[in-house]
Design a protein around this nucleic acid. Structure first.
Lengths: 281, 281
DNA sequence: CGTCTAGTTGAGTTGGTTCAAGTTCCGTGG
DNA sequence: CCACGGAACTTGAACCAACTCAACTAGACG
């Protein structure tokens, strides 16, 4: 099968860029890796179809907000944050992407990317230019389906992030985030109990729509309660059911008037009696 | 709870179901209407291709959370809210859809709908069953592209909603929502300055992740400042630039330390429209 | 006509923001 | 190599806005 990608795209010079830059012309990889990343069995034709790889150094942007939409990106390894800059200069983190996630789809409706994407560590992506993609999708139903599923996942992901921000209490938001990360880790076949956060406290705060100091305090609380052990960005979940219980209460205003309030002194878990006495003083 | 569905829905007259029910077997419409709703020029083949129409009465659910994913829905007229029910019973509104929006795509990745969809008023949708849809998309590149764009829009929409919740001050969240609605109205060719909200204060509060009383007070403030005129769900925007200025400050924690706060008396806009233009500097 | 829901308004409380000061860690350059 | 500077993170304290409870009005609906 002869797939013709846009001419010259695989022949870019392999120049090197200083720290914070992008290495655009890394060796091309094969489409079969894309299928694998998307969770589909590799197909014969894919081994012959070269895809451009883009390496992005930590802190560099894969594409800036407002960039003209040209490609879809499949994260190969590394991690990214998606952010929107308000007129007042505040950068709101609206998304988080890791290996297997698809980036850049938001830009299809409008022809400018509404969100910018920045690498949280040295990363690489597969680049699927929009023109030529339709042909590829028509050629391979498996790729087509996989992309659909990936995009559906991105939509769900965005909604899940919104779900985290909905909680009133900051520890609940944080607990939800940790559980969410845990699920993602599990889905990727990695340990759901022990992982390293790729985002800074600031980014995390922005994602959860709280102040970064509040994130620090939140980690402190969850650790104090024995749910997690936190050392900088290294997170270990000690009490998964406890953390999950913490996740529940979005807000107190519910139909059921007598509902346990995990934010109140009574229902806040306490690992020993000494702390309880202190709290009552 | 709500009124339960009648036992024999098929025995009912086709066009009548009691309040809160669904009319499953309405007259089929033509695919060309789908194309029109998606913003594409109608094509000849589409006039021959019948699509099922589903009518949903106000308060009824198009599909519940956890439903098996079978179809994509294009909103024909009316309005819907998308919501996720937490374990504690709290219903979080995560989305809002009107004419031309596409619903149900989240369910493609997992095969259960992560979100439920409820009609906010008597509405109707076009039903595109997933099986058969691939064939249709292959048949019509225009439909394919239109669906892609629509889904991309849904993704952007979810992120925009998250963007609203990010603001600290409740009036800012509300102002962002109103501006967002205004843009949507304009995109639909309707008045961007005067519209009727389809959501209750409670739903709106849930969408913005604040208490419903806070929404009331927020409307009161925006009205007091002369930005809008609000009568129940009827909203008229009086000072668009003012409202837009109100939208800005996500939080004070920024690089630029001296930034006006829209909640302070200083930044209160005068009724004079000319001064409102450049009140901030 | 009574009940229920939607919406508004008031008052007290609290938890998150904010400012401030401190520590730790990392990369850079002397 | 160490000193320095900056970024990331933590912790403390004060304030204030949003939550919460509560009471009330206005409509809708049977």
């Amino acid at each position: 099968m002869n797939t013709s990608l846009p001419t010259g795209i695989s022949q870019l010079p392999e120049w090197f860029v200083h720290r914070g830059g992008i290495v655009p012309g890394a060796q091309p990889h094969w489409m079969s890796e894309a299928l694998t990343l998307l969770g589909v069995a590799a197909e014969a034709w894919a081994d012959a179809c070269a895809v451009r790889v883009m390496r992005v150094r930590s802190g560099a942007s894969l594409y800036p907000e407002g960039a003209t939409t040209q490609s879809l990106y499949i994260v190969r390894h590394g991690a990214f944050k998606c952010l929107k800059t308000a007129e007042d200069g505040y950068e709101h983190v609206l998304g988080y992407a890791e290996s297997g996630d698809v980036l850049g789809f938001e830009g299809l409706a409008c022809d400018r990317q509404p969100l910018g994407v920045v690498a949280l560590e040295d990363s690489s992506v597969l680049v699927l230019p929009f023109d030529g993609l339709d042909a590829l999708r028509r050629q391979s139903p498996a790729l087509d389906r996989a992309l659909q599923r990936a995009l559906s996942s991105q939509l769900t992901c965005a909604q899940e992030i919104a779900g985290m921000m909905a909680a009133v209490a900051s520890e609940v938001r944080l607990a939800r985030f940790l559980l969410w990360m845990s699920l993602r880790m599990a889905a990727r076949g990695q340990s759901p109990r022990h992982f390293v956060l790729r985002m800074s406290r600031r980014d995390l705060a922005s994602l959860l729509a709280v102040a970064h100091e509040t994130v620090s305090r939140g980690f402190g609380l969850l650790a104090e309660w024995g749910y997690v052990k936190v050392d900088k960005r290294d997170v270990e979940i000690l009490d998964m059911p406890g953390l999950r219980a913490c996740t529940c209460s979005t807000r107190r205003d519910m139909n059921d008037p007598h509902h346990p309030r995990p934010t109140s002194a009574v229902t806040r878990p306490r690992k020993n009696a000494q702390q309880a006495e202190e709290a009552l003083s």
